[in-house]
Computed example of a mutant assay.
Amino acid sequence: MKKIVLVATFLFSLAQISAQKIGVVDTNYVLSKLPQYKDAENRLNTQISQWQSDLQKLQADYERKKEAFENEKVLLVGDQLKLREKEIVDMEANIQNTIGARFGTNGEVNQLRSNLTKPYQDQIWNAIKTVSTKNNLGIVLDKSNNISVIFLDKRYDYTEAVLNLLGKSTPKVEESKDNARPGVKNNDNRSSKDRMQKRAASFDSAKEMRTK
């Protein structure tokens, strides 16, 4: 009897799910079309560039001091040698701490980006709720979050509907959908960020090792 009830429940649930309309929205595309978001993102990128520049200066100063120390080490003795060694160690630690604080997993960059996107995510969420109610959608997928969609009938893509709803209070931006992705940088900035992230990851790993 229990098996029959379970099977009936499963079939009922399956029927309910299949009866629901599913919609898809590309939230990254919607974000890219909001001028206010793009302005805020530009400010964030300016701040990131400044932090990268500051970090590069620290790194250059460290390399210069370390090279001078290696060249003069044979002439140093006693406390003088220890002081110079400590200076190099402290400079390296400062660089690692700066990378972790700014570019680490819980660093200032991620915090600023989260604070930047939240108000716009809330706007998009409210617009999606309105569109879902209007179109009787039971499930809405975000195709910008690594969801693999093999085939999608255009009538189930509600990205433009959400954007049009938000567009009532925002001016239109003339860009193609394919090229309008937020956060696209040139190769130099991307490679620089990659290096920062790798060093930040190394810093986080080393920090975890020290705490164990």
Rank of each mutant, 00 (worst) to 15 (best):
Q52I: 12
I4K: 03
K185R: 15
K207G: 11
L112P: 01
E67W: 11
G104Q: 00
K38G: 08
Q47R: 11
Y120D: 05
Q52W: 07
K185H: 13
A8I: 06
Q56S: 11
D153Y: 07
E108Y: 03
K185Q: 15
N187F: 13
Q20F: 09
F203C: 10
N136K: 09
L14Y: 05
M196Y: 02
S176Y: 05
P171Y: 02
R199I: 09
L163T: 06
R155E: 10
F10C: 09
E70Q: 11
F151S: 14
S18Y: 10
N187K: 15
M196K: 06
S176W: 12
I4Q: 02
E174L: 13
E92S: 14
K2E: 13
N94A: 09
V131K: 01
F69D: 02
T159A: 06
K21L: 05
N189G: 09
N110W: 08
M1K: 15
K168R: 11
S176F: 12
V77Y: 12
V184A: 07
I48E: 02
T9C: 15
F151P: 00
Y156N: 02
L6I: 06
I124N: 00
I88T: 01
K154T: 05
L112V: 03
S148G: 10
N179V: 14
A15S: 12
K172N: 07
V74E: 14
A60Y: 06
E41K: 08
E70I: 09
R43V: 09
L165R: 07
T9V: 15
Q20W: 03
K212N: 11
Q50N: 13
L11Y: 01
N136C: 07
E41S: 08
E92L: 15
A8C: 08
W125N: 14
